[in-house]
Design a protein around this nucleic acid. Structure first.
Lengths: 137, 137
DNA sequence: TATTGTTATACTCTATAACTATA
DNA sequence: TATAGTTATAGAGTATAACAATA
């Protein structure tokens, strides 16, 4: 069991660097993309909640949210009960961006698919939700 | 299929940040760990080969190899045929470090295992080699 | 007094460009 | 002339510490 997770980490690291070069959204850092994914799942959240969910420190999230806002991908609104906090939510533009990102990736997937057989794809499709669960545990 | 890989990326990103806080080897960066993993698989390699395999640029690998050498985890020897190149190989200490890393991780795994059932573990174990293949494709 | 978020600053990791040595 | 590796430098992303506003 130990080697499974160590392997997940080492290969995941390598895969991340490989995918980095195939990034379809040059304008968005991996964490910005991840925040949009979180907002798509959870709806709106405060910067503090996002920092905890993404496992970054609050000052880092301040910067990330500011960048996403500047790109028109998130909206900031005052918190209904607490004037210290803010509500962050994704814009329609963010949804469109995620959809476009998926379709752009298909071109690259065609190449990638040549290296994996159908069983291997099936394995990955099964693993995706488990990785998601693991990441959010 | 597109959403599978996009999901792998987003969740992988998140998982990487999550694992970062559980790192057992504070002294080793993710890429340094990955290089050790590559050397464990492939035996010795030149800095240029390592840079290509790890998907980093040569100057980055120069630095990484220097750091690993300073920590006593790799050994550098002259290339037999080409005096420009060097051979990098892992030391016994590196093997011991990887083994220790696996066993230390078990403590954390016990906690993690509570959140996943046996089928989900099985899915991850199956996915690990496919992720490895994908990363090295 | 504790908590949310921000500002200022420094660190880590990687990349690009220019250079040295060897092929 | 081309290639392997290095040095010097810059950029992206994150963290820590100190601070402001609100609870």
């Amino acid at each position: 069991m130990g080697s499974t997770v160590l392997s997940l980490r080492i290969d995941g690291e390598l895969l991340a660097r490989r995918l980095k070069h195939q990034r379809v959204d040059e304008s968005l850092s991996p964490t910005e993309m991840s925040v949009l994914g979180t907002l798509a799942r959870c709806g709106s959240a405060t910067p503090g909640e996002l920092a905890r969910k993404e496992h970054v420190q609050p000052p880092s999230m301040t910067r990330i949210v500011a960048l996403l806002e500047a790109k028109g991908l998130v909206r900031l609104e005052p918190h209904p009960d607490d004037r210290r906090q803010k509500m962050v939510s994704q814009t329609e533009q963010a949804e469109a961006m995620l959809a476009e990102s998926r379709s752009k990736r298909n071109a690259w997937l065609t190449t990638l698919a040549e290296g994996l057989d159908e069983d291997e794809w099936e394995t990955l499709r099964n693993a995706a939700p488990v990785l998601e669960k693991l990441a959010h545990l």
